[in-house]
Lab assay of single mutants.
Amino acid sequence: GIDPFTGEAIAKFNFNGDTQVEMSFRKGERITLLRQVDENWYEGRIPGTSRQGIFPITYVDVIKRPL
């Protein structure tokens, strides 16, 4: 089901994660935001896939912030 505490964002740019914990994505992908890790990073996942990880806040347009 849908978790009411998650947020939502759209990727503004392609992001290629450097490490296992970073999640790569392509511009235009819809991302579920799980939490804000710190002032620069979100943790999120791509709905319908097993992809999950952290990524820079500046790479996405936030539609709804996670609670």
Rank of each mutant, 00 (worst) to 15 (best):
V21R: 14
E8H: 10
E29A: 04
S50L: 12
N14W: 05
D61K: 14
G7Y: 14
R30H: 12
L67K: 12
L67V: 15
I46P: 01
G28Y: 05
N16G: 07
P56Y: 02
Q36P: 07
L33R: 02
I57C: 11
I57D: 05
G17Q: 04
E8R: 08
N40G: 11
R35S: 08
G53P: 00
Y42P: 02
F15T: 01
G48T: 05
R65A: 15
G17K: 04
T32V: 12
T49C: 03
N40A: 11
I31K: 00
Y42R: 01
G28T: 02
I2W: 13
G17M: 04
F13S: 08
I2A: 14
R45F: 14
G44K: 00
R51T: 03
T49G: 06
V21D: 14
T58W: 14
F13E: 12
Q36R: 10
L67M: 14
Q36E: 09
V37M: 08
D18W: 11
R51I: 05
L33H: 04
P56G: 02
L67Q: 15
R35H: 07
R65I: 14
G17I: 03
P66D: 08
F25N: 01
N16M: 12
K12S: 06
D61P: 00
N16S: 11
R35C: 09
G53I: 02
N14C: 08
I63K: 06
N14K: 05
L67H: 15
N40Y: 15
T49R: 03
D38T: 08
Y59E: 03
G44Q: 00
N14L: 04
L33Q: 03
F15S: 01
I2T: 14
T6G: 09
N16T: 13
F25S: 01
D18V: 15
K12P: 01
A9F: 04
G1K: 08
E8Y: 14
L33M: 06
E22F: 12
F25Q: 00
V62N: 03
E29V: 03
A11G: 08
G28E: 03
P47G: 08
G48C: 10
D38H: 08
F25R: 00
F25W: 02
V37P: 03
D3G: 11
T6K: 10
K12D: 02
T19C: 13
S50T: 13
K12V: 09
D61E: 13
R35A: 08
S50Q: 11
Q20C: 15
I63E: 05
T58K: 12
I54H: 05
I57W: 05
E29F: 02
T19Y: 07
I63N: 04
A9M: 04
T32E: 14
Y42C: 07
N16E: 12
G17R: 05
I54D: 01
P4K: 13
A9K: 02
S24M: 04
W41C: 08
A11K: 00
E43S: 07
L33S: 03
V21W: 14
R45L: 11
P56Q: 03
N40W: 13
I31C: 02
N40D: 12
D38C: 13
D18L: 15
G48I: 02
T49M: 03
I46W: 01
P4W: 15
